[in-house]
């Protein structure tokens, strides 16, 4: 998660092989737990603090889920390594 693996320059430590595959993409178990906890708390939290007149609780819950998504995106780094090839030379 917040281990700052030099992602700015695009380098990634090669020995950090602790990601598993779920649904066609890689995740780190610790980060996944963090994301699930964050999103669950924000979603249900927002639902319960909403005024009890439908459809407000649902709407609050949805916004809560999106807030959780935004926070998770901010604190977790994607487990992807981008390599940009210059295509021109191959044409």
């Amino acid at each position: 998660m917040l281990d700052g693996q030099g992602h700015k320059s695009g380098q990634i430590q090669e020995n950090s092989a602790d990601n598993i595959e779920i649904w066609e993409d890689f995740v780190r178990i610790k980060d996944l737990v963090v994301a699930l906890v964050i999103c669950s708390i924000t979603t249900l939290g927002a639902y319960f603090i909403a005024p009890n007149e439908p459809p407000k609780p649902l709407f609050f819950g949805l916004v809560g889920a999106l807030v959780g998504f935004a926070i998770s995106s901010f604190v977790i780094h994607p487990k992807r390594k981008l390599i940009v090839n210059d295509e021109k030379g191959e044409k």
Binding site: A35, C39, L62, I76
Partner: peptide, 15 residues
Amino acid sequence: PHEAMLGLFFGLVLL
């Protein structure tokens, strides 16, 4: 991150 996408779906399902 993929984790955030999974978290989002999980949150919605809980709700």
